[in-house]
Amino acid sequence: MPTGAQLTVTDQRRATRHPVDFPVIAEHHVHGDMNMHISNLSAHGFMIDDAHDLSRGDRVIVRLPVIGRIEAYCIWVRENRAGFQFERIIRLDDFMSIIDELQPNPRLRRPR
């Protein structure tokens, strides 16, 4: 039987990603507090564009508007970018509230 986080990356890559400009301080179990810049966000995870000292499988805790602290797992790293999957899916109404708060350009928000 497999152990550890059971991440269904292929299923969740189809989630709509919203461009955001959100600096965050992430808690890493080895590196401590790390400054990160979230450049896109979905209900399943996020991408940062300033990945340093991160490897696939690393876990971080970030604080997002509306939902507060949430854990995420690094599922890929390429050059200076890294993709993270949340340990749980964010509810749609909470996610839309987050996007309303973080989306720098209201014209890029999806119509409801």
Rank of each mutant, 00 (worst) to 15 (best):
E27H: 03
L54H: 07
E71L: 03
Q103Y: 09
R56A: 12
G57V: 11
H29W: 11
N80P: 04
P19L: 01
N35V: 10
S42F: 05
P104F: 08
V66G: 05
R13L: 12
R112N: 12
I98N: 02
V66Q: 08
R14H: 12
E101P: 09
M47D: 08
G83N: 04
D53Q: 10
D58K: 05
D33K: 03
A26D: 03
R14E: 10
D100T: 15
A82R: 00
S42M: 01
D33G: 00
D21T: 07
H28A: 02
F84P: 06
A5T: 14
L7E: 10
P65M: 12
D93M: 11
F22A: 05
D33L: 13
D94L: 04
I89H: 05
T10Q: 07
I67Y: 01
D100M: 15
V20S: 00
V30K: 10
V9C: 10
S97G: 13
N40P: 00
I89K: 11
N80E: 08
E87V: 14
V62L: 10
R81D: 02
L64C: 09
Q12S: 05
S39V: 14
R56T: 15
I90Y: 06
V9T: 12
I70H: 05
I98K: 00
N35S: 11
A15D: 05
V60S: 06
E101T: 11
L92D: 09
Q12I: 02
I98W: 02
D94F: 08
W76M: 07
V77L: 11
R13F: 14
G68A: 03
Q12N: 09
F46R: 00
I67L: 10
V60R: 02
L64S: 06
G57L: 00
P23N: 14
D11S: 15
D21A: 00
P2H: 09
I61P: 00
A26L: 05
I61M: 09
L54K: 06
P106C: 14
I48D: 03
I67G: 01
A51Q: 04
E27R: 04
V66I: 13
E27D: 12
Y73H: 12
H31E: 13
D93G: 10
P2V: 12
N40V: 05
R78C: 10
V77I: 11
V30Q: 07
E71T: 14
F95D: 01
D100F: 15
I98F: 07
S42T: 00
I98V: 13
I67K: 00
I70T: 14
R59L: 07
W76H: 04
D50T: 00
F86I: 11
A43G: 04
N105M: 11
Q85W: 06
S55G: 09
H44R: 07
N105L: 14
H31F: 12
I89G: 02
M96D: 15
E79C: 13
S42G: 04
R88W: 08
F95C: 03
G68E: 00
P106V: 04
Q6F: 06
A15M: 12
C74G: 01
H28I: 10
R88I: 07
A26K: 06
G45R: 05
F86C: 05
R88Q: 12
C74W: 00
P111D: 01
V62I: 07
E101I: 11
P111Q: 14
A5L: 15
R56D: 15
A43M: 08
I99T: 06
I48C: 06
